[in-house]
Every structure is written in structure tokens, then in C-alpha cells.
Design a protein around this nucleic acid. Sequence first.
DNA 1: TCTATATGCATGCATCTGCATTTACATGGA
DNA 2: TCCATGTAAATGCAGATGCATGCATATAGA
Lengths: 157, 157
Amino acid sequence: MEMLDKGMPATPSETVQRAWARLIKAQRSALGRVERALKSAGLPPLAWYDALLELERVGARGLRPFELERAMLLEQYNLSRLLDRLEKAGYVERRACADDGRGNVVVITASGKAMRRRMWPAYAAAIEDAFGRHLSEQQAKNLDALLGALIARPHST
Amino acid sequence: MEMLDKGMPATPSETVQRAWARLIKAQRSALGRVERALKSAGLPPLAWYDALLELERVGARGLRPFELERAMLLEQYNLSRLLDRLEKAGYVERRACADDGRGNVVVITASGKAMRRRMWPAYAAAIEDAFGRHLSEQQAKNLDALLGALIARPHST
DNA sequence: TCTATATGCATGCATCTGCATTTACATGGA
DNA sequence: TCCATGTAAATGCAGATGCATGCATATAGA
């Protein structure tokens, strides 16, 4: 985890500190609202949607857990357990992987696709309510660009 | 939790969806890195810092838990337990509240102040590394403004 | 004053997460 | 072929979180 401490503590500017605090709070606020909306609609949590979406996109060929892990920026053990839950709910299947005996391939089931579709309206409304409606198109674009610079793989660097 | 479903599902635009996904990932990525940096330095998690900072700012008069809850945008039970941990660690004290027999007043201790001070260098370096260094001053300012629009009290609306 | 309801905070229980470790297989030498 | 090392994924355990609820007190209204 070394962070090249070449001497000085690298204190972020006041502006950066403010933006940092806002990032934490804005995300917690918005994400919390979305999760609560889903739950109150009797639907599974957000992570299920994201995983199902990724899996639906690639279709029958499926994804290796480590691919999904990278796409979703999840820790390995979190993904492993998310897959446990999705599998137990019947939304995905883990199939033995032909190329690599250690791994498996995760494929979405028909009922998984159905659940994803069923989640979308509630999810969409919640995103719009907690997030979208506070921003113009242009602002959303700018925000997207600014945040893009921040995303890095867990553990990298 | 009704969300005024006046008919249509209020689907967010593509742009908003992308920005939303980025917000989740950027925050998870950056926050994860900061938490790991703190932990690997043998320090308590971020929330402790934030709470101690708020408490230090108000000094000896302290804060009611519900005030802290609002400042930090935490759920009531999460704050209650955070205070349990902080209290057990000796960093805060819960004192009976004179005005209101139901509540109490939380005050930071000397050792709490010391811990906050001790955390700052590692925390600052981590923020800078995971966040600040990716942004110019102007970008940080813009990001801060954009995120400001998103913050809302949990449960409100 | 008495009663209904709201507020401040805590807590039991189930679930989820973080961390370290384990298991299984893969791969590249010697 | 055998071993050392690396990588994919799962898992035991401890700690954190979400939820529902409990308890004590406050407050407003009859």
C-alpha cells in the first residue's frame, strides 16, 4: 500500500477537501435513497441489478467471476457472495469453465432477466428522483467527466 | 416512501444514467482506497475521523446525537453504534442532557482530539492520492458545486 | 390532568462486509 | 516429472449495517 511518502504529507487543498466531503455525502445520500426505494418496492438491492445487467449484456457466453468483479469494482469475496445469493435466488447459474478448471462461468437465467426487467422501472424512478432531477443534461455530462478521472481499480496504484 | 408515480416511470436520460454509474463507482473506488490506507496505517475508519472533527469543532458544549446524525447524514442506528465504539475507545463521552431527559450530549475527550490529530496526516495523504491529485483546483470546485445539488437529508422527500 | 402521539436513542436479529486463509487448478522452470 | 509460484474462487470468523422494535421522555390537545 506504500504511497510514495517522499517526505511531505501531501495535504489536499481546502477546495479538494470540500469536494471530497461532498462526494461522500452526496453518494451516501443518493445511494441510500435508491436502495430504500428498491427495498420498499419489495425488490432486491442495487448490486443485484448491476450484476444482472452486466450478465444480460454478454448473453449466453456469460462472464467469469473475475471479469464481473472488475466491471463492478467489487472485492473478490463480495462478488463471490453476491453470486451465491443470485444463484440461490435462481437468477444466475455457475457453470464449470471448460478452459480453466479453477474457474466457472456465470450465466443469467430467464428468471434473472425477468427480475432485471422488473427492477428497472423502480430503479429508474429512484435514480431520477435521487439524482437526475437535480441536474441538467449538461451538468450530468460534466459530472460524469469529472468523476471519470477518479475511477481506478481497487488495489491498483 | 411513495414516489408520486403520476403515471410514467420517469426514466433518467442516458447521460444521467452514465453519470449515476460513475458516481457509484468513483466513490466506491476512492473511499475504498482511503479506508484501506487508514487501516493499513493502523488507524480507525473514516467515520471516526468525521465524527471527531465535528465534535472538536463545537468544543465543550458537545452535540446531541441527532445533530451529529444530521451533520454526517448517518442513519440513527448507525450513529448510535458509532458513538458506542467511540465511547468504548475513550474518544467521546455521552453525558446526560439537562434540557431533555430522553437525550444526551456527546463531547470529545482529550484522547479523542489526539486521535483525530493523529489520523489527519494519513487521511490527508489518502484523500490526495485517491482523489485530489486527479483534479485541478477548478475541477474540484466544479465537482463540489455539482455534488452540492445532490445532497438531501435521508428520508426527506 | 389524562391520554394520544411524537421524538431521542438503544438494541436483538438477520444480513452483509472485510480480512485472512484455504482449496483447487495452472504454468513455468529445473 | 516434480516443484515453486501464481491465479480463480470459496469460506470461517469478526465486525458493521439495515430493519424493526423497545423504552423513556416530551408535547399537544381534550
